[in-house]
Design a protein around this nucleic acid. Structure first.
Lengths: 211, 211
DNA sequence: CTTTTATGAATGAAGG
DNA sequence: CCTTCATTCATAAAAG
């Protein structure tokens, strides 16, 4: 643990002192250093203190949130065709469909094909790539989200009744799984979650500030 | 608190030095400290060095994990569709690993052993129960998802030399094979690597500032 | 600039 | 094991 420069400096110091200890037989055994050295020492200690603080902070953040900021960065995005709408020059972090891409996606979505899965994704991606940066994951996510949100809206738009007779098979896909038995009982550990919640925003922004 | 202690000690030092300066060559201004003090200093600096190293290690270990799993804050969820009945306020929330549980899970996952057998699951669950509510099903699902998603990303990170042997699927047992192995969704992992680089660089530069 | 909304992405769980 | 779904988080975009 002594492979830092500070240690080297210290060693020099100690050597410098040897003769003194022998000379001052009956006197105090002391170490000597110049103002410069003292200042250097203080500086180095200070730096260590700072580093430790930051590392501890970082560690706590990571331990507490494990992620949130760590891997959230998406692909770089610089769409040349974006000029038409005239904004967003330095977009990054997360993919955003261009107007053209969105139009195409919506069209495909409306064409029924409730299952854009698999091979379709590739085809769609290929087509959309010609209109801006995009990946298969983006397309996949888009459809997943599109469908989920479309479905949710439908459910909300029919909030009536809800009596004991809910068999209005409007949709009700499976929203009640009604497991035969509740195998696992989940209880919220509010205590812990609460403690961890703080770091979130703070750390998040800190780590994200890597411009 | 380490920082504080050191600083305080340093101040004491400066006060004690005055009377002893006379011992040394008259013109040269120096700071003096006893062997004990020097030893104390050395130990404290050493402690700092150790702390820094360990924190860096910890940080790297945690950050270097392929997939950073996020955590959810355990919010109570009140199903809007149930509101009318006014009962069943039960929180239908899904399990969320606590940071500690996650670390343990990740550690086990990284230790290879891609086969969390039934028995193993029980053991792991037992251990994790001490750090928060969890069931065997949770553990099972976690490993299942972890593996699947890890594999998918690995495929992406390796833009392998695509052979055209893909069309060799002559044997179609049923009717729709759809060859799923080529469809895996892509997501650039480059960003994540970049992120790690940055973090490492940051720490690195800080440590280097000791020079 | 701050708050709100829309939506891309992450992930626990279920099905096959 | 793989895919799909539901839910939640975080952030780009929009509104104030």
């Amino acid at each position: 643990e002594e492979k830092v420069r500070i240690m080297e400096w210290e060693k020099q110091e100690q050597q410098q002192q040897q003769p003194q200890q022998q000379q001052n037989a009956g006197v105090m055994y002391v170490k000597v250093m110049t103002d410069e050295q003292m200042e250097l020492l203080r500086k180095q200690i200070s730096i260590y203190a700072t580093i430790c603080e930051q590392l501890v902070e970082m560690h706590k953040a990571i331990t507490a949130q494990q992620d949130l900021a760590g891997m959230r960065l998406g692909n770089l995005y610089c769409d040349p065709l974006m000029a038409s709408s005239g904004h967003k020059i330095t977009a990054r972090q997360r993919w955003t469909p261009t107007p053209i891409q969105l139009q195409i996606l919506e069209r495909i979505f409306d064409q029924g094909n409730g299952t854009p899965s698999k091979q379709k994704i590739k085809e769609i991606t290929s087509e959309l790539t010609q209109h801006g940066q995009i990946s298969e994951t983006n397309v996949y996510n888009w459809f997943q989200n599109r469908r989920a949100r479309s479905k949710r809206k439908q459910q909300v738009s029919i909030p009536n009744n809800a009596e004991s007779e809910v068999e209005t098979e409007v949709e009700s896909p499976k929203e009640k799984k009604t497991k035969p038995e509740n195998i696992h009982f989940h209880e919220n550990q509010a205590q812990k979650a609460e403690d961890l919640c703080f770091q979130s925003a703070e750390i998040s922004s800190e780590l994200h500030s890597l411009d």
